[in-house]
Design a protein around this nucleic acid. Structure first.
Lengths: 382, 382
DNA sequence: AAAACTACCGGAATCGCTTCCGGAAAGGCT
DNA sequence: AGCCTTTCCGGAAGCGATTCCGGTAGTTTT
């Protein structure tokens, strides 16, 4: 039985559909409108209503500003009032509504993270480091993957900006040549830290591993172990880290007066498939290399595969060094010499950098370079 | 030069410190207070102020309710007005402030995910699946790790609840015996989906892999390949999945009339370290097993290690089957037979389930069981 | 004892949006 | 023509905090 909310009469006229889940009526007695809910399966079940600062204020007979001050440990409040409020807040199990807080303070305590992929251990490990640090400061991470696709990177950053993250941690895709989206984010006032996959073209805080030095060490290690014809499986040259690793490779050869052979240097796209093709090409060369420095471990694995297929003796006939210290590398036969990057530390660093930048009005941009470690196993020692 | 904001006089008295970054003055001419900002290095740089529905409303001379209706594609608005508003919104590059939106609608479009760890491929892969689905519906994921520690799980869920996620996706730690925190979340009205590591003790939506059947198949596979003395490296029995896998193992033995030997069944804690101890114990038994069904691949790897140390012939002297299809399994020698779980699908499922539950007021709880696939490689075939 | 501070608090505006409520104008039906 | 509806819109009340502004009462200074 529906009755008018104003005069309680039951004669009224049903009007057209109103808002979702409501029906509108015009009472014929008092000539006023009123609405009535009707069944709506799609109705969203409301979250239990929590208690607010109003409840606390009422309980103690103070104003909400005072409650707010107590909760925020302001110095403009009497210690007794504060304690009283805090006690009641605890008794009532008050839990600040972060939605309201976010709006009022215009912050989300959310950091956006954009990475090319999540499937290898590298990025998850960085994530763990970053989370460890961020959680201490009550920040959370939203992780998005670009799958190495530029368009996704664009979309991810847009999404993250839409959700108003307080900062952005970005590792670029291998495709990214245009950096307007990054610059736009920075211009709109969002703190940005670039890591691992960075670019010279944007001025902001950056963190990388010392790819040059790591590559140099890896190649020199091969040389000191008697390898002379060292090939290099490189990656896309728009990636800063590929350039750096290539340079490390070249400089190591130069230092030891080894010839640089163009046919030994291949530029892949970081996919296993292309690595497989290159592996075949290299080992089938009339004058094949006696060792390979691969841009990453998955590529190195493809070398293993084809070398084994060819029944080559590892590491005697072919020395191999990878990059990134994938867990697999330890279990390969022979176990793979590779470069271990300080992922957890990098996670910490990017987290601390973005937090610093968030609370600093005019940050001084810097590029931090972390050292990587050559993990010597059996694939590079005759 | 500071002047009174009311009478523009310059005679005033500086009062005590006021709010952060402000100084307070009492004007001696008009006897009124006014505040002035002072330098504060810790001042947070404000995000560029975006344009709001007010700007659009002003531009067109309509009310903000109308603008809101246009933006929300309400049916209570004239098509022309709507288009006009939409056009201006586009021209002005209007971007809704999600903070305000969240508060008004009391939702965050955020889903919390709590998992024991991120280091293996299993969970990252699920995450990828879930994200794929959620992003389509403009939801985002906040990922938190419990590191298999109950206290962390508690904390993670609390944090997630504090940030008012719209739903919770949880995979329990191996320690979790008390489920009050889960029940509390549910009681407070937050949709919860349990997956992978579930419990019978909570009524809610759940998704698991058919652990029983997978284990049964794995063990039967060993049997049909001539193995007779099959050991099982199990895990903590408070984990549902460990129980299921154990039962699958037992039933397969029973079906084929093989004796069940207690000394062949070991209950570990899922750490590599304990697996290593068990591996040693098993293979050094006076009457050692001729094969092992391990609860997961890392445990299986420990078996490999010790077996190789003992110079045992794999798979002739010892058959091994793992669980979870870690990428490493393919590269082990011999390659490891294991069980591949539909992780990506599971990701989709948990995402779709939580979204369904979010928009349904009174959900009917169900438990979805996904099939796992036995990947037969060389470690289990003599 | 007057003057000048300090400590502390309440009221109200604000953040930017959704949505309820009420109603004017136009259209439809006898 | 008169009555009912429908269409479409504006005003205003939230959402739940923060924070600005103003002021009172008590304390210190002179």
């Amino acid at each position: 039985m529906i009755r008018c909310k104003h005069c309680s009469e039951i004669s009224f006229i049903q009007k057209s559909g109103f808002q979702r889940g409501k029906q509108r009526f015009l009472c014929q007695s008092c000539n006023k409108y009123f609405t009535e809910e009707y069944e709506d399966d799609s109705a969203i079940k409301p979250r239990k209503k929590g208690i607010t600062i109003y409840d606390i204020a009422k309980e103690l007979g103070v104003s909400i500003s005072t409650v707010s001050r107590a909760l925020n440990d302001s110095n403009e409040i009497n210690i007794n009032t504060k304690n009283a409020i805090l006690k009641i807040a605890q008794d009532l199990k008050y839990q600040a509504n972060s939605l309201a807080l976010n709006l009022a303070k215009s912050q989300t305590k959310l950091i956006g993270l954009v990475i090319p992929e999540l499937s290898h251990v590298f990025f998850p490990s960085i994530i763990m480091g970053a989370q460890e640090y961020l959680n201490k400061y009550r920040y959370n991470l939203i992780i998005m993957q670009s799958d190495e696709v530029y368009a996704n990177e664009l979309l991810n950053i847009k999404t993250l900006l839409d959700t108003r993250v307080d900062g952005l941690l970005i590792s670029l895709t291998k495709e990214t040549n245009n950096f307007d989206h990054i610059q736009n984010a920075i211009d709109s006032g969002v703190p940005v830290v670039l890591f691992n996959r960075i670019t010279e073209q944007i001025e902001c805080n950056k963190i990388v591993v010392d790819d040059y030095q790591a590559a140099f060490n890896a190649v020199e290690h091969l040389i000191t172990n008697g390898y002379k014809k060292i090939a290099h499986l490189s990656g896309p040259q728009n990636l800063d880290l590929c350039q750096k690793r290539l340079k490390g490779y070249l400089d190591a050869l130069k230092k030891h007066n080894l010839p640089i052979q163009d046919e030994y240097i291949l530029f892949g796209d970081l996919t296993d498939n292309q690595a497989k093709i290159f592996a075949k090409y290299l080992l089938d060369l009339p004058n094949p290399p006696d060792s390979v420095f691969a841009i990453n471990d998955p590529s190195a694995i493809e070398i293993y595969k084809y070398a084994k297929e060819k029944k080559m003796k590892l590491p005697e006939q072919l020395g191999i060094v990878g990059f990134s210290d994938d867990p697999i590398s330890e279990y390969l036969e022979p176990s793979l010499t590779t470069i271990k990057q300080p992922t957890r530390e990098m996670g910490h660093e990017i987290a601390s950098m973005i937090l610093d930048q968030i609370k600093t009005s005019n940050p001084i941009f810097q590029t931090k370079i972390l050292n990587a470690e050559l993990v010597i196993r059996n694939s590079s020692i005759k």
